[in-house]
Amino acid sequence: MRYLLRYIGHRLYTTWATFWFVMPFVVTYPLQLALSKKPQWHRHLHTLNRYWSKLFIFMWGMPVETVRKNPLPAGQPCVYVANHSSYIDIPLLFRTIPGWLNIMGKLSLAKVPVWGPIFGRAYITVDRDNAISRGRAMVQARRTLEAGRSVVIFPEGSISKKPGEEMGEFKDGAFQLAIATGVPIVPITMPLNHRFMPDVDGLRVRYSPLAITLHEPIPTTGLTAADAPALRQRAHDVIASGFRATAKGIPEQSSWRRPVAVPAVEQPAAKKESELASSNS
């Protein structure tokens, strides 16, 4: 009975979370579509996206711990670099980071039905396996910074294979961009997103607190392209310092059946005798 009740609870909460993600978008879709049509309206579209993110994260009902280690540079754009662990990384960033942001996302996001074209018009998309696409995205990001607008980049390029434990190898692009434009790097750690919605087949949602830390900005003034690897490693270490040992792993798939214990495999007698002899030698 305990497993059945837990399974029903998971299904109900997943339905609740999905409803509050989808419903505000459906209601505001005509406005979002209209605002996406002209670049001069994208600022208002981002504001709408921020309130959409705040609303559905609030309605999900779990606490969000927000830590800002140091005030962000006033009136200056930044390159925000964050670990990538879940589908909800972008909404949590939109909710937390002030101002009109641009964000670099994978090209497949622009191909999501209905919502994708809006994202593709308003933000930067990139095919990370295509050198031309990567170059075009960096040009867009540089123009964004030069216009006084901050940029968010996931330097891993994709969701980590071991979220909350290890990050994929960081690419140099974000750090070369920050050095070239002279703007600070702001590392961001989101250590718990994968506990709420992991990157798995199907939709798996679990009630779980969230947390986000905006670390102290790292200045790039006076740095050259040769300093990019050291800057990349420094940002990597800062982000990793915010991980939590208790957040390792992803939630298991829910089932209404009691787990069946797998019996230990009996070792052949000859192998047991060999191991015993080895331990006594």
Rank of each mutant, 00 (worst) to 15 (best):
M1L: 14
L5G: 10
Y7H: 15
G9F: 11
G9P: 08
H10A: 13
H10E: 14
R11D: 09
R11A: 13
L12C: 12
L12I: 15
T14Y: 02
T14K: 06
T14L: 08
T15Y: 12
T15V: 15
W16Q: 08
T18V: 13
F21R: 00
V22F: 04
M23T: 11
P24A: 09
P24L: 09
Q32R: 04
L33D: 07
A34R: 14
A34S: 14
A34Y: 12
L35T: 01
W41F: 10
H44N: 05
T47I: 10
W52R: 00
F56Y: 06
I57E: 03
I57S: 00
M59W: 02
E65C: 10
P73W: 00
P77W: 00
Y80L: 04
V81M: 06
V81E: 00
Y87E: 04
P91F: 02
L92P: 00
L92F: 05
L93Q: 00
F94W: 07
R95K: 14
R95S: 08
P98D: 12
G105I: 02
L107F: 09
S108C: 10
S108H: 10
K111S: 07
P113I: 07
P113T: 05
W115I: 07
W115Y: 14
G116D: 04
G120Q: 04
G120P: 03
V126M: 06
V126Q: 03
V126L: 03
D129P: 02
I132M: 13
R136A: 11
Q140M: 12
A141Y: 00
R142G: 11
L145Q: 01
V152H: 03
I153N: 00
F154H: 01
S158K: 11
S160L: 06
P163Y: 06
G164V: 05
E169G: 05
F170K: 06
G173R: 01
G173E: 03
L177A: 11
L177N: 02
L177K: 03
I179G: 01
G182H: 07
V183I: 07
V183Q: 00
I185C: 07
V186I: 10
L192P: 00
N193K: 09
F196Q: 04
M197L: 13
M197A: 04
G202N: 09
R204W: 04
Y207V: 13
L210E: 01
A211T: 07
A211K: 13
I212H: 01
I212L: 05
I212G: 00
E216C: 09
T220L: 06
T221W: 10
A225D: 12
A225Q: 13
L231Y: 02
L231W: 01
R234A: 11
R234P: 05
H236Y: 14
H236W: 14
D237S: 08
V238I: 11
S241E: 12
A247Y: 03
P251T: 12
W256N: 14
R257K: 15
P263V: 15
V265F: 12
Q267G: 04
Q267C: 11
A270C: 10
K271R: 15
A277V: 12
S279K: 15
